[in-house]
Design a protein around this nucleic acid. Structure first.
Lengths: 226, 226
DNA sequence: AAAAACATACCATACGGTTGGTATGTGTCA
DNA sequence: TGACACATACCAACCGTATGGTATGTTTTT
């Protein structure tokens, strides 16, 4: 959190710090309850700097959603759930990975853009659309693996890869809502277990099947567990 | 919840109007963005009346969640999805009913307590807990039908009726989030289709089975459609 | 030198909440 | 029965503060 020295000024360092503060504080208090002063205090910048980088609070909301899209897509691209050679294994590994990162405080693993969209969908269309691009951009990264698994296994489905990818995101977002309402992260994990069972059913893969065949990534997660 | 007193037949009319205004405006703008003045204006009462009935804005939030719990539980208790004699049919009819009432504007069918919980879970524990009681009180009304269906059909499951009921609610809440982010109610209905398919899989009931056997309520919904 | 990146001081308003009051109903007891 | 004490429901005006936003600098980088 310490500011960079005057002679090594990171380009847009105040801007980045404001976006990071927005990510953390909006996830904790919501967009409306987060004041510009809150953000300036957390980022250790003045209001002048804030309005130099963002034309309005709403513009910051849009930028925060875009920042979230950038950072999370980098995070998921680098995540190990892409490792399995089998496409269905990658899909199941994704679910297992999402489940594994649900840990700690609620504000640390819940979704910024889901929270913001829920709150401002009607009053701030620009923010809503930026949140939508982040969410549906992410679901799109799952579609190829789902479609590959479907074709490879000859599943003639009455559902599309697109819709199953979106459903996966819906289960995640809904799990977050229940976890918040019940103040218990386990509620989010619980729904992911149902999602995993659903996907296995869709692909006729039962729990009895050897895991190392279908889901080596999940095996590794289990082996790493204490 | 509203204590029935002998005197003052018109008692609490301002209170009720404020709770109805809260239900509508908070669903549209969120809790923080909804001002006390907004509510007073919509309910056509003065601020003095507001703070006569509610000790604070947060107290109104709690009361609004409780009001939501009361009105929705009466609504669902009177809904026709309880009609089928078969318990699994009732569960599937519930999902079909939830899908059927997703229509019109987002603010008209989305969930007040899900929205509020998502927003204030960290900053207003009293409201969060009231939202939790509303949500999990509702999921509990599904548990008996699920458990009866399970026993009747001899399903030896690695899941509980409780967790499946909660998952159903998670899919609904997540569907609402996606519908808001994508500004399209169809996104919520889409996830309910996956949920229905999941439940059918769990109970080994395929789409090919005769509907009138398993789900007369759904048949009626279809017949009623234009 | 130009412009981008900050900082300081300030503003109008909207915010949640308080105050002091009125009108009306209700239980009580002389 | 009536008058009195008390409670409830509601209102208009007001208060201190926090809010998003601006005007005008100063510093730093190119």
């Amino acid at each position: 959190m310490s500011r960079p020295t005057k002679h090594a000024p990171e380009r847009g360092s105040a801007r980045i710090r404001l976006l990071e503060a927005a990510r953390d504080i909006i996830r904790e208090k919501g967009f409306s309850a987060t004041s510009v002063d809150d953000l300036c205090r957390a980022a250790d910048v003045t209001k002048g700097a804030f309005f130099h980088h963002f034309g309005s609070k709403e513009a910051l909301g849009v930028a925060a959603a875009e920042f979230w899209a950038e950072t999370t897509s980098a995070f998921f691209a680098a995540a190990p759930y892409h490792e399995p050679a089998d496409p269905l294994a990658r899909v199941l590994a994704y679910v297992a990975f999402r489940k594994a990162i649900i840990a700690g405080a609620l504000k640390e693993f819940t979704c910024l853009v889901g929270t913001m969209a829920q709150e401002v969908y009607e009053s701030a269309p620009d923010i809503r659309d930026a949140c939508g691009r982040s969410i549906f951009g992410h679901t799109a990264t799952l579609e190829d693996d789902i479609e590959m698994a479907r074709q490879q296994r000859g599943i003639s489905a009455d559902w599309t890869a697109e819709s199953l990818a979106r459903h996966t995101q819906a289960v995640l977002q809904g799990g977050f809502v229940l976890a918040k309402a019940g103040n218990d992260p386990a509620l989010a994990r619980e729904s992911l277990d149902h999602l995993e069972r659903y996907i296995r059913h869709l692909f006729n893969v039962t729990e009895d099947d050897a895991y190392e065949q279908i889901d080596p990534y999940r095996m590794r997660l289990r082996a790493d567990a204490p």
